[in-house]
């Protein structure tokens, strides 16, 4: 199925500075997203997933240097003024942040924070806003929603705060949702309910979604396509089924092997050996080489480009693995 592209990210790079040294957190990231499509973004802690989302929304430029293009419905929003961006942010593009506690205002009730968003981004009247606020809390599974509108964030459990963030992001019916680990603090039943809600909106209103998650089960059950990040780059991109059944990049393969499934209980789990490189000391060549079982001299000399391996599939690797070809899992 081909869909109209609504978002096109081209050569996006975000660099921070610390003590006079450059920290390239996102390096030359390019991808597209279709209307109603759900793209999963996975990868090592610290690989640049959150910074990528923040850069798309124009938030990273306040504390880092951002280059490249973010074409939203045909225009480059990376170059928009802060003022012009404000009409896009929250209304057309909404973000669910990774830390629900720090992105909710502790001094305002949950109801006030929801109705604020509706006031800013919709034409709803006062009583309709209240009704929509209750409806949204209800949708995300807050029990006794009407009774808890006047509560403050600290009176909610971790998962309930996360659901409030989701309700706020979805309240104005955005066309693009940037969801940074929206369900990590949720139990699986509520997670399933929230993912159903997001998928329903993607289908019904053709809302595009970029979903950052560590949970490969969530990826399997919700995403159309997946991009894997390592040390600031996309190292593999593929439709969800082939990515999970036949990963081609050694890092993706390592991730798949680390899932505790089919392993004897309470025994050691596989984990990718070594640690990720410091951003201010990236190795020459492939950033994964120091940890890669297939690294060769070519790998430590030149950084592989993200090459097309098959229709819709690409990997940034000189020696892509293949389970189909019988490489060890």
């Amino acid at each position: 199925m081909t869909r109209d592209t609504i978002l096109e990210v081209r050569n996006l790079s975000t660099t921070f500075a610390r003590a006079g040294r450059a920290l390239p957190a996102v390096r030359d990231v390019s991808f597209t997203l279709g209307r109603g499509e759900v793209l999963g973004l996975v990868g090592e802690s610290g690989s640049g997933k959150s910074v990528t989302l923040r850069s798309i929304l124009g938030l990273s430029r306040h504390y880092g240097t951002v280059t490249g293009e973010v074409r939203w419905k045909g225009r480059d929003i990376a170059s928009l003024s802060e003022r012009a961006l404000r009409s896009v942010r929250g209304r057309e593009i909404a973000m669910i942040f990774q830390e629900p506690m720090s992105s909710l205002n502790p001094l305002l009730t949950v109801g006030m924070q929801l109705t604020e968003v509706l006031k800013a981004h919709t034409d709803l009247g006062r009583s309709e806003r209240r009704r929509r606020a209750i409806e949204m809390l209800d949708h995300v599974g807050i029990p006794s929603a009407a009774a808890r509108l006047d509560d403050y964030p600290h009176q909610f459990s971790g998962g309930m705060r996360q659901r409030v963030m989701i309700a706020i992001a979805l309240a104005a019916r955005p066309q693009l949702l940037l969801a940074d680990e929206p369900t990590t603090a949720l139990d699986v039943t509520i997670q399933a309910q929230i993912l159903d809600l997001i998928l329903g909106l993607a289908r019904e209103y053709e809302m595009g979604v970029i979903l950052v998650t560590h949970d490969l089960g969530v990826v399997a059950q919700t995403c159309d396509r997946v991009a894997v990040m390592y040390a600031g780059r996309i190292v593999e991109e593929a439709p969800v089924a082939p990515l999970l059944s036949d990963p081609r990049h050694p890092y993706t393969m390592g991730l798949m092997r680390s899932v505790p499934e089919g392993v004897a209980p309470r025994t050691a789990l596989y984990s990718v050996p070594g640690t990720p490189p410091a951003l201010d000391a990236l190795p020459q060549g492939c950033a994964f080489a120091p940890r890669c079982p297939s690294a060769s001299a070519q790998c430590t000399a030149t950084d592989p480009a993200l090459n097309r391996l098959a229709p819709g599939r690409s990997a940034a690797c000189h020696h892509p693995v293949s389970l189909a070809k019988g490489d060890a899992a």
Binding site: Q191, A192, L216, G217, A241
Partner: peptide
């Protein structure tokens, strides 16, 4: 409700029905 690692299982998981309880 635990999400399966197999995309082919999509939509199979039974959802809990009914009003969420409130403490």
């Amino acid at each position: 409700a635990a999400p399966s690692l197999d995309p082919a299982d999509r939509g199979r998981g039974a959802r809990l029905q009914g009003e969420l309880p409130s403490p």
